[in-house]
């Protein structure tokens, strides 16, 4: 059962990461456009996404069971990324937050999202850091011993 949940969470966290990246990319570029800032400066906002994506890729390519099968890590990742998507959704569609109406043309509540960015970035960096430590300290899946019955 745990294995099935882990596989499910493994897939979901990659999908959530991509969705949250697209949402953040959309919001941050529009925010920079509004403030007339140089887009190059926005790279620092996306760095935690890239770093997390990189460690996810390493986990998958090298089949690191100590990370991929860590239920707590997978649940935490999904929770953080869910939160990111939810915040993005609110910034783009929640018109009951009146700044959304006030900010007009862009149809994004930049103030709300700007408040969110800092803690979210910290959480993504911490997840990357945890992933690294898990790579070296986590328990690897026990190799299956196939016993052959010798007649």
């Amino acid at each position: 059962m745990t294995k099935i949940i882990n596989v499910f969470l493994l897939v979901m966290k990659v999908i959530f990461l991509l969705i949250s990246f697209v949402i953040t990319f959309n919001i941050v570029l529009r925010m920079y456009d509004r403030l007339d800032k140089n887009y190059i400066e926005s790279i620092s906002v996306f760095l935690p996404y890239f770093s997390l994506f990189l460690v996810f890729a390493i986990n998958l390519v090298f089949k690191q069971s100590q990370v991929n099968n860590c239920l707590f890590y997978n649940v935490t990742c999904c929770l953080v990324l869910c939160m990111l998507i939810f915040c993005g959704y609110r910034a783009m569609y929640d018109e009951y937050m009146l700044l959304y109406i006030r900010l007009g043309n862009y149809h994004i509540n930049f103030n709300y999202y700007a408040d969110m960015i800092a803690p979210l970035q910290v959480m993504l960096y911490l997840l990357t850091f945890s992933n690294f430590i898990l790579m070296f300290t986590g328990k690897k899946e026990a190799q299956k011993v196939i016993a052959k019955k010798i007649d």
Binding site: F72, Y73, V75, T76, L79, V80, M83, P119, M123, L126, L127, F129, S130
Partner: peptide, 9 residues
């Protein structure tokens, strides 16, 4: 660390 991130999220 994971616990803190989990709780905060």
């Amino acid at each position: 660390i994971m616990g803190i991130v989990f709780g905060y999220a």
